[in-house]
């Protein structure tokens, strides 16, 4: 069955790249432009995995993860944070917020897909 990935990123370039890499690997992709928009999208769609940026306007990635984890419907949806920050502090903070894993930008499509396969049932 086709799995659906929600990508949340304020950069159009990054959204396009994610979409292309994911679509090529056979995933269905839905997109949001920031945390608030991501939560909005979640009202009508249930993705199998959420891939989110950290630095975003309105609501950042940490905020999004915390909000998603508080919602029992999405408690078990894996969330990968996608960010250029590869330092331990950002990962730790994402983990504390409830992130499942991470992808370091700039990503290679193969690594992206591997990370998603690792967390997607």
């Amino acid at each position: 069955m086709t799995q659906t990935i929600l990508t949340v990123d304020d950069s159009r370039t990054m959204r396009d790249m994610l979409k292309m890499a994911l679509a090529e690997a056979g995933f269905n992709v839905i997109q949001a432009v920031d945390g608030v928009h991501g939560l909005e999208v979640l009202q009508t769609s249930t993705p199998d995995v959420i891939v989110t940026d950290i630095n975003m306007p309105k609501m950042d990635g940490f905020g999004l993860i915390e909000a998603v984890r508080k919602d029992s419907r999405y408690r078990r949806v894996p969330i990968l944070v996608l960010t250029t920050e590869s330092d331990v502090a950002k990962k730790t903070r994402a983990k504390e917020a409830g992130a499942t894993g991470w992808i370091v930008k700039p990503f290679e499509p193969t690594k992206l897909i591997a990370a998603i396969r690792r967390v997607a049932a």
Partner: peptide
């Protein structure tokens, strides 16, 4: 930050 991210790619 976004410019850096895209530029990296």
């Amino acid at each position: 930050h976004s410019i850096k991210g895209g530029a990296g790619a």
